[in-house]
């Protein structure tokens, strides 16, 4: 028990929480922006997976070719793959006005299958998992202070918490573009009548979201693991879908949700290594169950964007 109450344990837990929460922050903010424009992008799970794969494959090839900035090439490639999937989602749901949930699931299935296919094509069937030298952790406070480990994080973690969340909030709630985006998600007919280009705005939201989702996936392969495996995303995209609702479509609350889940996840991992036998699956199921409960409690007042799941057609 004394192990758990020690400061080192707490510091380590906070540090791990931030790490675990990072991909969720990227994904959740991306999904918040997309859903605020009236599109549920269930492609998130697959886009994160594709981002993790494309980022890793590009980085591995560039590293093998001796390119110095190979990790940045990987990140860029991941973002491009996210943009392409977002474009496809836009073609299906914005231009053609197809069923959003089936399209989104189709994107997830496609992006997942393409990644697995691509992995075999690029790396063959070798039994040794290929790996790269990943992003280093920054150490702005050195190594000696008690709280140093908390700040010893990857650059992308800093970007997630200090750039993506505040910027996402600011763009959504303090800019004209954000106002347009939200009005397109709330009432596309009125937005159209007010001269806002509904189609272009929805595409923009999808693209921003897709880039963030893919970057979140790439964080895992390029920073945290330095490798790619079929279980790399393991439902994190679905966790983001839950967090968006839990956060009532607000990036800042989304970050808090991601931290909460990150904390629970990091804690169960630590308790397991300390030999506590606990059904960790129950803890991992919490974000889903809490979200469903939150929806049930909010009931008809759940703050869904008005045009959620509704395609827009100019008649």
């Amino acid at each position: 028990m004394s192990d758990i109450l020690s400061t080192t344990f707490l510091v380590g837990l906070i540090a791990a929480t931030l790490r675990v929460a990072t991909p969720l922050v990227f994904g959740t903010v991306g999904e918040v922006i997309t859903e605020r424009a009236g599109i549920l992008n269930l492609g998130i799970e697959g886009i994160m997976f594709l981002g993790a794969f494309v980022g890793f494959a590009a980085a591995a090839k560039a590293e093998a070719a001796g390119v110095a900035g190979y990790l940045w090439i990987g990140l860029l490639a991941a973002v491009v793959s996210g943009l392409l999937m977002a474009l496809l989602m836009g073609l299906l749901t914005v231009t053609l006005g197809l069923n959003q949930h089936v399209s989104g699931l189709g994107i997830t299935l496609l992006a997942t299958a393409l990644s697995l296919f691509g992995f075999r094509v690029v790396f063959g069937e070798s039994s040794v998992l290929p790996s790269i030298d990943p992003f280093p952790q920054l150490a702005p406070l050195g190594k000696d202070l008690l709280i140093s480990p908390i700040f010893a994080q990857y650059l992308l973690t800093y970007v997630a918490f200090l750039v993506v969340v505040p910027l996402g909030w600011w763009v959504l709630f303090r800019t004209n573009f954000g106002l347009n985006l939200r009005s397109v998600g709330e009432n596309p007919e009125a937005a159209d009548a007010a001269g806002i280009n509904v189609f272009r705005t929805r595409y923009a939201a999808l693209l921003i979201g897709g880039a963030l989702m893919a970057a979140g996936g790439a964080f895992l392969s390029l920073a945290q693991l330095g490798a790619f495996s079929p279980g790399i995303i393991a439902g994190r995209g679905w966790v983001c879908i839950a967090l968006v609702i839990f956060a009532r479509w607000n990036p800042v609350r989304g970050m808090l949700g991601a931290l909460l889940f990150g904390g629970v996840f990091a804690l169960q991992l630590r308790l397991q290594t300390l030999g506590f036998a606990l059904p960790y699956e129950v803890l991992l199921a919490l974000p889903y169950l809490v979200t469903i409960a939150a929806l049930a409690i909010a009931g008809r007042n759940a703050a869904y964007p008005g045009a959620y799941l509704k395609p827009y057609r100019r008649e």
């Binding site: 269930l42 439902g235 679905w238 879908i241 609702i245 889903y288 169950l289 929806l295 049930a296 799941l309």
Partner: peptide, 27 residues
């Protein structure tokens, strides 16, 4: 029930319960 009684969209709730079921089986 959430759809019928509370008009809550079933897409996300049915989807999230997939992950819960998988975790349940794993437990």
């Amino acid at each position: 029930l959430m759809r019928v009684k509370l008009a809550i969209d079933e897409v996300v709730t049915t989807l999230l319960l997939n992950s819960v079921a998988l975790l349940g089986v794993s437990a």
